[in-house]
Simulated assay, not measured.
Amino acid sequence: MRAFESENVILAQLGDPELLALERILEPLRLPRNFELVHVGLPVSHYYFLENGVASMIATSPEGRKTEIGMLGRDGMSPPALTVEMERFSFHVMMQIGGHGRRVEAGALAGFLIGRPIVRRLLSRFLHTFFIQVANTALSNAVHKIDVRLAKWILMCHDRLEGEQIEITHEDMADMLGVRRSSVTEALHVLEGEHFIYSTRGLLIVRNRASLEAFAADAYNLPGITGHDWPQTSRHLIALAK
């Protein structure tokens, strides 16, 4: 019998021996909106395995302007790092949409990974696909209109949440996309006019996922990602988390 069941894709793929050993150092916890997982420039104290909710990795300019450069949820670990032995992280990571998960102290995770190459490979696969996501976001920001970028962002949130509702404000979406609030409002009107979504104050509801995917097209469907690689859509996430 497994030590525990988890909706996190990495934890769900671990074998029983690894899961039993990891259970001893994992701490389940709620992750409310705006909870800071990592603060830029500060030591990384814990690593988080989200099971629900959405975390944003945020870059900040010297003038204080911010934008989301990556999104994390039940598909991986936060912060995404090449090595858990690093002392500081270069970006801010915070819960954009509240949820829950499990965390482990950085030193304890480093000790756990010693002599466990299978687990390290899982983390490496996640990291590889996460940075494909980051690169694709940079490309999308350069070549796609705001309504397409917003459709992509909504789909990526939907992948990492249960149900059709996304608790998010227009201001937060504007901050994450690095645009004015009025631009997000106009883009939402486009998506609502096509009956892809319904948006009200602080809440967005996905009405027609398939049509929203078709509208987002190559902005959402990452090139070079197949069902044999890390999951990018909700159907892959759900299948691997069971």
Rank of each mutant, 00 (worst) to 15 (best):
A3W: 01
A3R: 12
A3F: 01
F4M: 12
E5G: 11
E5K: 13
S6Q: 13
E7N: 14
N8K: 06
N8A: 05
V9D: 03
L11S: 00
A12C: 08
A12R: 07
G15H: 09
G15S: 06
G15V: 01
E18M: 04
A21K: 14
A21G: 12
L22I: 04
E23K: 14
R24M: 04
R24L: 04
I25L: 13
L26H: 09
E27Y: 08
E27M: 09
P28N: 10
P28S: 11
P28R: 15
L31M: 15
L31K: 08
R33S: 11
R33H: 13
F35I: 00
E36W: 11
E36M: 10
L37V: 14
V40G: 07
G41V: 09
G41F: 11
L42I: 01
P43D: 06
P43I: 05
V44T: 09
V44M: 05
V44W: 07
S45A: 10
H46M: 05
H46C: 05
Y47L: 06
Y48L: 03
Y48K: 01
Y48T: 03
L50Y: 00
E51I: 03
E51P: 04
V54I: 11
V54P: 00
V54E: 06
V54C: 04
S56Y: 14
I58R: 04
E63Q: 14
R65D: 10
R65E: 13
K66G: 04
K66I: 06
K66N: 10
T67F: 06
T67Q: 11
E68V: 07
I69M: 14
I69G: 04
G70F: 08
G70S: 10
G73A: 12
R74V: 01
R74E: 02
R74T: 01
R74L: 03
G76V: 03
G76N: 08
M77I: 15
S78P: 05
S78D: 06
P79M: 12
L82V: 14
L82T: 13
L82S: 15
T83F: 13
T83H: 14
T83Q: 12
V84R: 13
E85M: 14
M86R: 15
M86P: 02
E87V: 05
R88A: 12
F91T: 02
F91N: 09
H92K: 09
H92V: 00
G98W: 10
G99N: 09
H100P: 00
R102I: 02
R102Y: 01
R103N: 05
R103L: 12
A106D: 04
G107L: 10
L109H: 12
A110K: 13
A110L: 10
F112A: 09
L113E: 04
I114D: 08
I114M: 11
G115W: 04
G115E: 07
R116M: 11
P117N: 06
P117K: 07
R120P: 00
R121M: 09
L122A: 07
L122R: 12
L122C: 04
L123I: 14
S124P: 00
R125C: 06
F126S: 04
